[in-house]
Design a protein around this nucleic acid. Structure first.
Lengths: 203, 203
DNA sequence: CAATAGCACGACCGGTCGTGCTATTCTTTA
DNA sequence: TAAAGAATAGCACGACCGGTCGTGCTATTG
């Protein structure tokens, strides 16, 4: 694969990411993708070996973008609660902040692929596992540093945090409620409130 | 439409509801539906004027089932917090309790139809609005009866409750985590804890 | 200048989608 | 029991799906 080929591949994935956020995995067809990349279906498909490979590479590309826009900036914050807060803040509505037109593809895929088997589901499962692992890790660190209660169940904390994220997604994308942002922030604040350690309570 | 026609229609909607919970709206195709109902595509289609009508009637049928299995039994509980608790309990994982093979179609549709326009989206939006309205109403009643804090924001409460429901859906259907039930119960209990009025705190 | 390799193209495959139109079979009723 | 009407099946359509194939253009290399 030469220079131009690699560039085209990049362009396909870049344009495709927008499509993915707007329509979900099922909307990423060769025809639609070709139209977005302004090239023929066959010309586009020459870069991949199956539509599943396209989907998986798009998910990989999304992971790179979110790592750059969501995770890395948050890691600059001080360890413990500040870092966790920063990550959650960057996470909520991250696609919009990243200049994408639609919503989080992983959130959509969690509902789209709940029954389907195969490599795409496995990919999404791995990404979700990684993400929840990261959240759990930062939560545990906040506990260790005394920012959160010592007896806090980190897994449960993350499980509820994901609920806030999903409710925010629905509220924003389906219900189109302008108060989505406030609701999510309030929910997160309330969850932190009852998770804080006593010596940190009045700050 | 004669007697037998009505019976067949009923059968189609009944079989179709299982299909809907398993595959979501996009999986409810005329072919798949005909196979489930053991009849020809065209014979089945003669009962409807468009696939959208099929989808809307399926959603209506789902609403009837959930009214019978989720709402009405909960209404027998004492007004206020007991009734709210009963409703949430029946709500979580209600499709399984109703003998359906898949997950809640509305939850799936909230992610499937976030961009699509048209009557099906409108139908789901109306159903979701009705449902959140019902939850809000019961929450307000619990406040009025002194079971929950007087200064509780009922809308925010319901918003967070929906987050628990969505996280439960994902946890159960996509992640296939056997602890889903416990997680959801714990989250709901924690939310009630910080919403209870002071005179009810130690019960 | 000729040979090669990378890249994109249009045409086409079998299959499924929603949706008409027409024919046949069943049920009901006069 | 025969006519009427409802219920179902058969069949064809255009659009789109993922995917293959042969062709031509362009740029590099010998």
């Amino acid at each position: 694969m030469g220079l131009q080929g690699a560039a085209t591949r990049e362009r396909i994935l870049h344009e495709g990411l927008d499509l993915l956020t707007e329509t979900g995995l099922s909307g990423v067809t060769l025809g639609a993708l070709a139209q977005h990349a302004a090239m023929s279906k066959s010309g586009l498909f020459a870069h991949f070996s199956s539509i599943e490979e396209v989907q998986i590479e798009l998910l990989d590309h999304m992971a790179e973008v979110s790592a750059a826009k969501v995770v890395r900036p948050a890691m600059l914050a001080a360890a413990g609660l500040p870092r966790l807060k920063a990550l959650v803040n960057n996470w909520l509505g991250w696609t919009t902040k990243a200049g994408l037109r639609g919503g989080c593809p992983v959130a959509a895929a969690l509902f789209e692929l709940d029954d389907a088997e195969g490599p795409v589901r496995a990919k999404v499962l791995a990404m979700e596992a990684y993400w929840r692992g990261l959240l759990t890790q930062l939560t545990r660190q906040a506990v260790e540093l005394g920012h959160l209660r010592a007896d806090l169940d980190a897994s449960q904390f993350v499980w509820e945090l994901c609920g806030i994220y999903l409710s925010h997604h629905v509220s924003r994308r389906f219900l189109r409620d302008p108060r989505s942002e406030k609701r999510a922030q309030a929910a997160f604040a309330a969850m932190l409130d009852r998770s804080r350690s006593s010596e940190e309570e009045n700050r």
